[in-house]
Design a protein around this nucleic acid. Structure first.
Length: 479
RNA sequence: CGAGAUGUGGCUCAAUUUGGUAGAGCGUUGCGUUCGGGACGCAAAGGCUGUGGGUUCAAAUCCCGUCAUCUCGACCA
């Protein structure tokens, strides 16, 4: 493997200051710019293109599983938001309010949606009458607003882009099945398209969505050992249905409440990509979502035929891959560094010597390995290099996850593991009492992330109180 | 929201301590030489110092407010 020499002075090294490294990468890779409103970021073309790729892949998964896209208004009247008690309590502290229309003060203030459960409920109550109307499987792509106090690009912004699926079903079983199906779609997407391993599990009572019966989540581990919730899927039971009077007539002509789900992922996924794969030279993008999969760099481009060959290769490869030619008159070295900073998975160098030999040079972003390949079977070689690259960055992320996951049976062991190894996931048994959950956080700094579906029996006692344990929990510091 | 730090051409910073005509490097534009790991020469453009008040003959500099960014806590996708 080629030596990883740090070539970009502009990016702070991860080891020196991880937070600064993150900010540097976000800015230097041209993903975002700050706006004049705190916590509202401008997503620049290169950053937005990543989101568009995420959207198109996920949207395909949604459509294939029977979902339809809709669009709901961005304003919610206060009275509507207040219909479900837990829900409004959860979200009220962080909503933005519209109180004026032009110069007229509004009779009833409107909140800018922090999430759209209430709007979907109101609508479903109208359009669902019979069991023949079920299920309804709606999704929307939109932005939502939550007035956060601490903000960071992609990880926590006051306005963010997301997708929210809202479904209603005739039975609890169907709704639970939907909740699990969507969580699995998210997890598969993260692993296959984002090359990011995740832990699937259920949130504890104290950590679940406001108004949900149960919340499921996928948790990923970042390079600095902090956990990041990459997606959630909620089962609502008939709680909202009762609050919003969402009923249908079943086959026996009885009136029943619908059973409901919601699920979502956000632009935070881009933050997850940055912190899962990035290195000291900048971004590293998984091929499925990289705006540019192959960058063609003409070498000695002033020489006869070089640029023409580069354009010809771009034309040819664009049928299969997302390709860009950089024909600017920056030096070759400058371009190498630039596209590494932007995380382009594969670089293709074509120079006079190559043209003579009917070959080109392919260089992988992750290890800078150079291979000479014939132009005859270029598509096959590129596909193979991209596949290998995707596998390699997945494995690297998986190794990071494994290396930073520690099984502990006592509070002391947790503290010892964290002190010796730095932040990471702690696996430990739990009795199920919220008191112990809080106490673990107080004594060690790690909070419960999820109760994983893949349970292990590390001990039969709760890590905190020593009483019989009911489940194993992943604990960690969260973004 | 609490504690701390910062805000000066596109970017990184100097000038602030001790108030007195706003400087540099990088980048940008033009021309020429270069070109397989961030090239070089020459010439040029670009700033009422985040913003609003105050003190002063005079404010980037001192005082107060406000907004934004970063770090650390509490809250959250």
């Amino acid at each position: 493997m080629a030596e990883q020499k740090k070539m970009v002075e502009a990016i702070t090294s991860m080891e020196v200051d991880f937070a600064q490294w993150y900010t540097d990468v976000v800015k230097k890779a041209d993903l975002v710019d700050y706006s004049s409103v705190k916590g509202c970021m401008i997503i620049r073309p290169y950053g937005y293109a990543i989101w568009e790729n995420i959207q198109s892949i996920l949207d395909g998964h949604f459509k294939r599983t029977g979902h339809e896209n809709v669009y709901m208004p961005m304003f919610i009247p206060e009275s509507l938001l207040q219909k479900e008690k837990d829900h409004v309590e959860g979200f009220a502290p962080e909503v933005a309010w519209v109180t004026y229309g032009g110069s007229e003060e509004l009779e009833e203030r409107l909140c800018v949606r922090p999430t759209s459960e209430t709007l979907f409920c109101e609508h479903y109550a109208k359009v669902v009458q019979s069991h023949r109307d079920l299920p309804k499987l709606y999704n929307q792509w939109c932005s939502v607003v939550r007035w956060e106090k601490t903000t960071r690009p992609f990880l926590r912004t006051r306005e963010f882009l997301w997708q929210e699926g809202h479904t209603v079903h005739a039975t609890a079983e169907e709704a639970i099945e939907e909740t699990e199906r969507m969580l699995n779609i998210y997890a598969d997407f993260c692993e296959k398209s984002l090359c990011m391993p995740v832990v699937k599990g259920k949130k504890t009572e104290s950590d679940k969505f406001a108004g949900a019966v149960s919340t499921y989540a996928i948790e990923a581990l970042m390079h600095d050992g902090k956990a990041l919730q990459a997606g959630t899927s909620h089962y609502f039971g008939d709680g909202f249905a009762r609050a919003f009077n969402m009923t249908y007539q079943d086959k026996e002509n009885k009136l029943s409440f619908v059973h409901q789900t919601s699920w979502g992922v956000t632009t935070r996924l881009i933050g997850a990509i940055i912190m899962s794969h990035g290195d000291d030279n900048g971004l590293v993008l998984p091929p499925d979502v990289a705006p540019i999969q192959v960058v063609v760099l003409p070498i000695a481009q002033h020489k006869e035929g070089v640029l023409d060959k580069a354009y010809e290769l771009k034309e040819r490869l664009s049928k299969t891959f997302r390709v860009k030619v950089d024909d600017s008159d920056n030096s070759a070295g400058w371009k190498f560094a630039e596209y590494e900073m932007k995380g382009v998975p594969l670089r293709l160098e074509i120079g006079p010597k190559d043209i003579e030999k009917n070959q080109c040079v392919l260089v992988r972003r992750d290890n800078r390995e150079k291979i000479f390949v014939s132009l005859d079977n270029l598509e096959v070689e590129i596909q193979k290099a991209l596949d290998d690259f995707a596998k390699a960055i997945y494995n690297k992320a998986l190794q990071n996850l494994n290396k930073h996951t520690f099984a502990c049976t006592t509070i002391d062991e947790i503290n010892k593991a964290l002190t010796e190894n730095g932040d990471g996931f702690i696996k430990a048994m739990w009795c199920g009492e919220e008191e112990c959950e809080d106490k673990v956080k107080e004594l060690t700094g790690v909070g419960s992330r999820c109760i994983p579906f893949e349970q292990e029996n590390l001990s039969d006692k709760c890590v905190c109180c020593g009483k019989p344990a009911t489940q194993m929990v992943y604990w960690g510091k969260a973004y």
